[in-house]
Amino acid sequence: MAADPAAGGPQRRAAARHPPLPGPDADLNLVLEADPLSVRHVLRVMQTRLAAELSTSAAGSLEIVLAEILNNIVKHAYRGEGGRIDLAIASGPGALLCRVSDQGRAMPGGVLPDPARMPPGLAIEDLPEGGFGWRMVRDLAQDLHYRRHRGSNILRFRMALD
């Protein structure tokens, strides 16, 4: 995708504002099928491959963030019908640079969800059973950036190393 000459202009401009895209030389490039068991498998592979670079806490946060992002693609972008997900992770200064892309449906309204935090003191019957995922992603990831480009959803973010 980065080699597409027609996309060079906008991508260079994007690169000036955002960390460099992890490309083919990223530490870790994974392609997975959009289903829950493939997501589980990729998270395990990733934990094994990145264990040496990350603190236990950072590895845990990365697993939470990637699980939410990947499962969101499985469920909403591809609506459980399957598809391809590309995941690239590269080392940057003090952080991992992550890029996740898919060719499913775009984010509604072209923006990432930003759900409210659960208010304190709710009665048990009023407790939410969903909406936790994007809140955790927004709390744990930095420089979260989404764009829709030529039929692809591209999500980039940083995860601190410690």
């Binding site: 845990g60 939470i64 955790m136």
Partner: peptide, 16 residues
């Protein structure tokens, strides 16, 4: 375990 506790803390479910 630590990462499960983190999920409960981030979502405030540890208070529930």
């Amino acid at each position: 375990t630590p990462n499960v506790a983190k999920v409960f803390r981030l979502t405030r479910m540890d208070s529930v």
